[in-house]
């Protein structure tokens, strides 16, 4: 799959000498959903804003669909839609007017049927004449998405699109994002809800202290870095783990009723059979047994800790 966004040796040093981005190299594939994860202040928004032209890069090169964001800014910016983190809206404008303005700003001729279609898709059609200040937070967020989509972008940046949005609306948005991807739009999203990235992303990138730590296919990352846990609910609380079980490095929970074994599912001999046999021999009986896989969130925490 070819790259729609190519970032090479990108650095951003703010005037106060703070380096927000350190030698970023990143390729975003056409048509994928890429989740950019990182703790607060990691550089996610700076990276997005630099690609969109809101922040000036210190050095490096950014190409969008092969065009340079500085030399060919008119082409690259018309290919990009941005939903920023902050709910920045014109409180006194109507939904229709603000979305129409966005389309015009990005150089597109007025197209009422298209705007109507977007507003209907985002359940904003019946609010089209409402001023934005009368809308709920979730509705305002949808207006931001409608504005970003108004000029039919090929690349859509969603900077924490579901921050402060309730569960139902969040699920709704996931569906919209999925539907957009099917129309060929490449989506780059940042989020603090790791389950969101886990649910939607094809690939994941982690940024910390301005550096990209890892970019990986989500499933490969989870397979590679995700540990599996075997959890045994004990019949009787255990005072201590028998010495014979030490090779498995088991963990006993605080109320001493649960044993956890971390294992590598990729290995043929993962040690489970031997563990269960040794438990019987040691007289440790259990009433239930289940497995759990590391979530993206747990992997992310591990990555950021390093």
């Amino acid at each position: 799959m070819s790259s729609i966004l190519s970032i090479k040796n990108l650095n951003k040093i703010y005037s106060g000498k703070f380096q927000a981005l350190k030698n970023i190299n990143l390729e975003i594939r056409r048509g994928e959903i890429f989740a950019l994860l990182g703790p607060n202040g990691a550089g996610k928004t700076t990276l997005i804003n630099t690609v969109c032209g809101i922040v000036n890069p210190t050095n490096g090169q950014i190409l969008v669909d092969g065009y340079d964001i500085i030399k060919d800014f008119r082409v690259t910016r018309s290919l990009i839609g941005l939903v920023p983190q902050e709910l920045a809206t014109d409180a006194f404008e109507t939904v229709w007017d603000t979305v129409t303005l966005s389309r015009g700003l990005f150089g597109k001729a007025p197209n009422k049927p298209y705007i109507e279609e977007i507003l209907k898709q985002l359940s904003l059609w019946d609010k089209k004449k409402n001023t934005i200040r009368t809308l709920s937070g979730g509705m305002k967020r949808r207006v931001m998405i409608a504005k970003a989509l108004s000029h039919e972008p090929k690349v859509l940046f969603l900077d924490e699109p579901t921050a402060g949005v309730d569960v139902n609306l969040r699920k709704d948005m996931w569906e919209h994002v999925g539907a957009l991807q099917k129309t060929g739009v490449t989506i780059i999203l940042t989020t603090h809800y790791l389950e969101e990235a886990q649910e939607m992303a094809d690939r994941v990138g982690v940024i910390n202290h301005g550096e990209i730590i890892i970019t990986e296919n989500k499933n490969d990352l989870m397979k590679k870095m995700g540990r599996k846990q075997l959890i045994l609910d004990l019949k009787n609380p255990l005072t201590e783990i028998p010495a014979k079980l030490s090779p498995w490095s088991l963990k006993l929970n605080t109320d001493r009723t649960q044993l956890t074994y971390m294992y590598d599912s990729a290995k043929e001999d993962n040690g489970i059979a031997k563990l269960l046999a040794e438990l019987s021999l040691s007289g440790v009986s259990y009433k239930d047994i289940h497995t759990k896989e590391d979530s993206l969130e747990e992997i992310f925490i591990e990555l950021v800790k390093k």
Partner: peptide, 11 residues
């Protein structure tokens, strides 16, 4: 209001 982002990111 912060809506300047749109003008700055427009072509």
């Amino acid at each position: 209001t912060g809506t300047i982002y749109e003008i700055l990111s427009a072509p």
